[in-house]
Design a protein around this nucleic acid. Structure first.
Length: 274
DNA sequence: AGTGCGACCCGAACGC
DNA sequence: TGCGTTCGGGTCGCAC
């Protein structure tokens, strides 16, 4: 569930809370979260200090000077800061003991999240990061770029936007919102879309992600908070989670369907399939 | 190469 | 009530 706006919120909060703290110990009750050699990971992060926290799309960068932990929260990954002597809870899988008596704890009910180590100067050359597209609100994202990347695709636009290689950072919630705002039906194949559709998608994505970032992201379902921080974009949602409710624009009944195996909400009147 | 889909996970919601 | 089943959601890897 954490998409770009939520990950930015986590990065911002972690920057305030752990920069300057040194890792003095590490426990890994469920070490499969970490890709690569576990002992090497441990050896590399012990005695390092968090120098800054950043993100690119949904990827979080926990920067420890010359090495960086790439952390992907997938659906339910969360970080918490707690006193070291607090008992571990069921879904706390990776525990960083810090030099001020607190822990940074990675919590993930579904164990889908992943972490791996890389050299800080090589972040953008890693397999995970190098293939990612442009962030929705970055100035270099424009209609020509999007149009060129979708115009030959025999794939539904919803699926294309969820694949992170064109636009980086949109997930199921914001893709539904962007397509609604663009008057594009989620099942429309990439090759059916016009440059005007691409323009609408770009403009909507910029507006929606800018607003969602300002509001700290979206808090829906059981996924509530990370580090005690709640987002407020859920109050702005037009279609996502609105099955059978009336469209705020035209009054039609919002429908729920599946596109590429994902729950998809849309307005049948505002978003006509081509 | 391009495209589709199950696996990874587990708790909540749902159906009987 | 209590059980079994379905759903969800990001990404990878395999199958066609």
């Amino acid at each position: 569930m954490p998409e770009i706006a939520e990950v930015r919120t986590v990065a911002k909060t972690l920057n305030k809370r752990i920069v300057g703290r040194k890792i003095i110990g590490l426990d890994m009750p469920y070490s499969k979260i970490i890709d690569g050699d576990i002992d090497e990971f441990k050896r590399q992060v012990i005695d390092k200090e968090f120098t800054s926290i950043d993100n690119y799309g949904k990827w979080l960068f926990l920067i420890l000077g010359d090495v960086t932990i790439l952390s992907h929260l997938r659906m339910e990954g969360k970080y918490f800061i707690k006193p070291s002597d607090d008992a571990l809870t069921k879904h706390e899988h990776i525990i960083f003991h810090l030099d001020d008596g607190s822990d940074l704890r990675y919590h993930d009910t579904r164990k889908f999240g992943r972490m791996r180590l890389c050299n800080t100067e090589e972040i953008y050359r890693t397999e995970e990061i190098s293939k990612l597209g442009i962030e929705p609100d970055h100035k270099s994202l424009n209609k020509e770029y999007v149009y060129e990347n979708i115009k030959n695709k025999n794939i539904p636009i919803k699926t294309l936007l969820l694949d992170q290689t064109i636009i980086n950072g949109l997930g199921n919630i914001y893709v539904d919102e962007v397509l609604f705002a663009s008057n594009v039906h989620p099942e429309t194949l990439g090759k059916m879309l016009t440059i005007e559709d691409a323009d609408n998608i770009v403009k909507s994505a910029k507006r929606i992600i800018t607003k969602a970032t300002e509001l700290g992201g979206t808090t829906i379902r059981s996924y509530t908070s990370s580090l005690g921080v709640y987002g407020n974009y859920q109050n702005e949602l037009m279609v996502h989670t609105k099955d059978k409710e009336s469209c705020k624009i035209c009054g039609s009944v919002i429908e729920k369907t599946r596109v590429g195996g994902r729950g998809t909400y849309f307005c049948p009147k505002c978003q006509v399939k081509k």
